[in-house]
Structure formats: C-alpha cells, structure tokens
C-alpha cells in the first residue's frame, strides 16, 4: 500500500463499504442520510470560498492592492511607509528558517524508516 496518498476513490470506497453495512444494520433511512454526507466535503468548502470571494456583498474588493486598509498601512505617512519589503517590513514581517535535517538523520540512524 502506498503511504501518504490522498485519493478520493479510496476514500469514497471506504465510506461506501461502511455505508453498505450501515444499510444492512440500521435500515434505509439512516443510510440515506449518511449518503448525503458523503458528498465531498472538501470540494463543497472550496466552492463556497470562491462563491464568497466573488460576492461583492461580502468582499468589496478582489485584489489585495485595492484594499483601503492596505493603502493606509503602506501610505507615505503610514506605519510601513517604506513600502512592501522595506526595512520595517523586514524587521516585523520577514523571517529565516532552520535546517532540521539533523534530527531526521538521527532517526534514520536509530533504524526508523520514513516514507522519504
């Protein structure tokens, strides 16, 4: 079995097997309710994001650079007056990263196998 794979077919299949049994155990009504819930949850949430995004009653603007509160932040007399990636931005909003491969190597030395 491949690890770390997310595929809808498997997920749906697992749900379907469970549901078939649910059908046998508790009868048609509950199983039908469960079937409605099987509709892909992630897809429904994603679709809702794009619906709201394009709904001017929820979001007046659709581009970050048009946001009045962004303009205020970067204005010539604003808090980040040097503009994006300026000195103050670098202090507050940018960061650095740390090599963490040593701990992974240590695990492998202990004989632990990971999937990559």
């Amino acid at each position: 079995m491949k690890k770390g794979r997310w595929d809808l077919s498997r997920r749906s299949f697992m749900k379907a097997t469970g549901l078939a049994c649910g059908y046998a155990l508790v009868g048609a009504r509950m199983a039908r309710e469960s079937a409605a819930a099987v509709l892909d949850m992630v897809g429904l949430r994603q679709a809702s994001v794009y619906r709201s995004e394009a709904d001017s009653r929820i979001y007046t603007y659709r581009k970050s650079q048009d946001n009045p509160m962004i303009k205020k932040l970067y204005a010539t007399d604003g808090f980040l007056k040097e503009g994006p990636c300026g000195h103050h931005s670098h202090q507050l909003l940018h960061t650095h990263y740390t090599d963490k491969s040593r701990s992974i190597k240590a695990l492998k030395k202990r004989g632990i196998t990971l999937s990559l």
Partner: peptide, 12 residues
C-alpha cells in the same frame, strides 16, 4: 481586519 476576496482564497 478589512480584507479582499484575494485574501479569503488563501484558504484553498
């Protein structure tokens, strides 16, 4: 707090 549609789509 005020945001745009470009911000909410970060969630997907």
């Amino acid at each position: 707090g005020m945001a745009t549609g470009a911000a909410t789509i970060f969630g997907t």
